[in-house]
Every structure is written in C-alpha cells, then in structure tokens.
Simulated scan of single mutants.
Amino acid sequence: MSKITRHDSNAVLSGAVEYHGFVFLAGMTADDLSQDVLGQTKQVLAKIDAALEGHGTDKTRLLQAQIWLKDIRDRDAMNKLWSAWLPEGGAPVRACVQANMADPRHLVEIMITACR
C-alpha cells in the first residue's frame, strides 16, 4: 500500500498531502487582507510557489487549480496575474467560480494539485 503523507494537519484539514508523487495543496489565501484582488492574488501565488518548493516541485508541474473569487467580476484582473505567473505552455486544468468566502475580506483562494 502506498504511503499518504499529511503536512500541517489539524482537526479540519491538512495544509498539503503527498501521495504517489502527487502534491495536493489546501486552498491558500492572502495574509494581508487590506489588499485588493491583485494584491491578494500576488500573495497567494507567492505562497503557492513556496509550498510547491517545500514539497519538492514547482509550478512547471501543475496539474489542476481550483480558484474561488469573492466577486467573479475580478476574474479578468486575477487572470492577468495568473497568466503571467504560469510557465509558458504549462496551464493546468482549472475551475474558477464565485464563492461566499469564510472571511468576507478574502477576495481570492486558490487550491493546487501538482506532481513531482
């Protein structure tokens, strides 16, 4: 049986789960919630880069992304940063939807699956 490794776990979730060379990251949000959607997206993408590196992979190995926006009208602004962040030819499968966030100050949340 293959080993499942959970990182930064609590009673509700794990920050990351590794299985069979796959890395599943929990949804990530910005720390500075005073920022607009561009500022929050920059923060989230930087956190994703750091988390992927910490698990032995990077954004060239993305498989899937799930993106939640507080306001879907922010999609174009977020997509400008998202597209610039992605490696050329390396876009993952993706969903992007509007959602009621747990904290109304959160404007974007991104969850990633990658491989090594």
Rank of each mutant, 00 (worst) to 15 (best):
M1F: 07
M1R: 13
S2C: 07
S2K: 14
K3A: 14
K3F: 03
I4A: 05
I4Q: 07
T5R: 14
H7I: 02
H7F: 12
D8E: 14
D8K: 15
S9E: 14
S9P: 04
A11W: 09
A11M: 12
A11H: 15
V12L: 14
L13G: 11
L13W: 03
L13H: 13
S14E: 03
G15S: 11
V17I: 13
E18P: 01
H20K: 15
H20I: 08
F22M: 09
F22R: 13
F24N: 09
A26D: 13
A26R: 12
A26E: 13
A26P: 02
A26Y: 02
G27Q: 02
G27P: 10
M28N: 10
M28R: 15
T29G: 12
T29D: 02
A30T: 02
D31L: 12
D31A: 14
D32H: 05
D32Q: 10
L33S: 06
L33I: 05
S34P: 04
S34D: 10
D36R: 02
D36Y: 00
D36W: 00
D36Q: 01
V37L: 01
V37D: 02
L38A: 14
G39N: 07
G39T: 04
T41K: 06
K42S: 10
Q43A: 09
Q43W: 02
Q43C: 06
V44M: 07
L45G: 05
L45I: 01
A46H: 07
K47S: 13
K47N: 12
K47V: 06
K47C: 04
D49T: 05
L52T: 06
E53C: 03
G54I: 06
H55T: 04
H55F: 00
G56W: 00
G56P: 05
T57F: 00
K59G: 05
K59E: 05
T60Y: 00
T60L: 02
R61Q: 15
L62F: 08
L62N: 09
A65Q: 13
A65W: 04
Q66K: 14
I67A: 10
I67M: 08
L69E: 01
L69D: 00
K70R: 15
K70M: 05
D71V: 03
I72W: 00
D74R: 05
D76I: 09
A77T: 08
M78C: 09
M78F: 12
N79W: 08
K80T: 15
W82Y: 12
W82V: 00
W82I: 01
S83L: 12
S83I: 12
S83G: 10
A84H: 04
A84I: 00
W85H: 10
W85I: 02
L86N: 04
L86P: 00
E88R: 13
E88L: 11
G90Y: 03
P92E: 01
V93C: 11
V93R: 15
R94L: 14
A95I: 14
A95L: 13
C96I: 15
C96D: 10
V97Y: 07
V97F: 06
V97E: 11
A99V: 07
A99F: 06
N100L: 11
M101W: 03
A102L: 10
D103P: 02
D103V: 04
P104N: 11
R105N: 11
H106P: 01
H106R: 15
H106F: 03
H106S: 11
L107I: 03
E109L: 08
M111V: 08
I112D: 00
I112N: 04
T113G: 03
T113W: 01
T113Q: 11
C115I: 03
R116T: 09
